[in-house]
């Protein structure tokens, strides 16, 4: 589905490597988190996926299309890309036109456009503000408009660059629940995030990028236990996993407060686990 082979990237011949021999296979329906420090190359890697940047060497293939030779406008039918700042994406006068913009670009049949816009705005709770000017909306709403305009393209891969930054907890949860349901419908999700709790709660697979290299790539609950690799990348495990790591082997499968409480209760009831 997405296949990255020996990918290296630098801005020009003299510049240092930003991506350094990356090899990744991401299959259909996966939910992948890409984590690491600012400057580790996360966004650069995402931009390789839809041809906004092209490999200096190696290859990136999306659904069989080589990004080196495929136009971004063609790749846009396969990959939806949500930018970190919704204000970079939004420029139409109404929410309706904003969602319509991408559909016209990919030459969606005119009679289908309206239907798709209605469908997507229903899903994201934007029906009542379709006629509003996006710039008068709150940051959380603008983020949802930007997401809607990407989702309208009905691509099977969705790339999200820090979709929850600058939002309060409630808005953050709303976005993540939508993304989760999209994944359950079979979409492949690749997401950059700095919030280890969001990563732990939602993503199935986690990749740590460090200095342009893949440092870890495994199931999320395993990667989030690698304190050393996380530490190297300026990150730390979520609170509950930190606790679990300190408390020893009886907690090695614990990822949530509920699981931890259950384990503690079972230990105290059966009574004899020295920690």
């Amino acid at each position: 589905m997405i296949s990255i082979r020996n990918l290296t990237y630098r801005y020009n011949k003299k510049a240092p490597l930003i991506l350094d021999h990356i090899n990744l296979e991401i299959g259909h329906g996966e939910f992948v988190a890409l984590i690491g420090q600012n400057g580790a190359g996360k966004t650069t890697l995402l931009k390789q996926l839809n041809g906004l940047l092209r490999p200096s060497s190696g290859s990136v293939t999306i659904n069989g299309l080589d990004t080196a030779t495929t136009r971004t406008s063609e790749l846009a039918r396969h990959i939806g890309y949500l930018f970190q700042n919704p204000d970079h994406q939004i420029f139409c006068n109404t929410v309706y036109d904003e969602i319509r913009f991408g559909l016209v670009n990919i030459k969606c049949q005119p009679e289908l456009i309206d239907e798709r816009i209605r469908k997507i705005s229903g899903l994201l709770g934007l029906d009542h503000i379709l006629a509003r000017n996006p710039f008068t909306l709150s940051r959380g709403e603008r983020q949802r408009v930007a997401l809607a305009s990407v989702l309208a393209l009905e691509t099977d891969i969705l790339v999200l660059d820090e979709p929850t930054t600058g939002q309060d907890y409630k808005e953050c949860m709303e976005i993540m629940e939508i993304v989760k349901s999209l994944n359950e419908q079979g979409k492949t999700i690749i997401m950059v995030s700095h919030d280890m709790e969001v990563v732990g709660d939602y993503c199935k697979r986690t990749i740590i990028l460090n200095n342009g290299r893949v440092l870890e790539d495994d199931e999320t609950s395993i990667v989030l236990r690698k304190s050393q690799s996380l530490g190297m990348s300026g990150l730390e495990p979520p609170q509950i996993i930190q606790l679990a790591l300190r408390l020893g082997s009886s907690f090695h499968k614990v990822n949530s407060p509920e699981e931890m409480a259950k384990t503690i209760i079972s230990c105290t009831v059966s009574g004899g686990v020295r920690v």
Binding site: D168, Y169, E197, P238, I240, S256, P257
Partner: peptide, 11 residues
């Protein structure tokens, strides 16, 4: 209220 709590508090 839609305000997050530290997980250690939830626990």
């Amino acid at each position: 209220l839609g305000i997050n709590c530290p997980r250690v508090v939830t626990l």
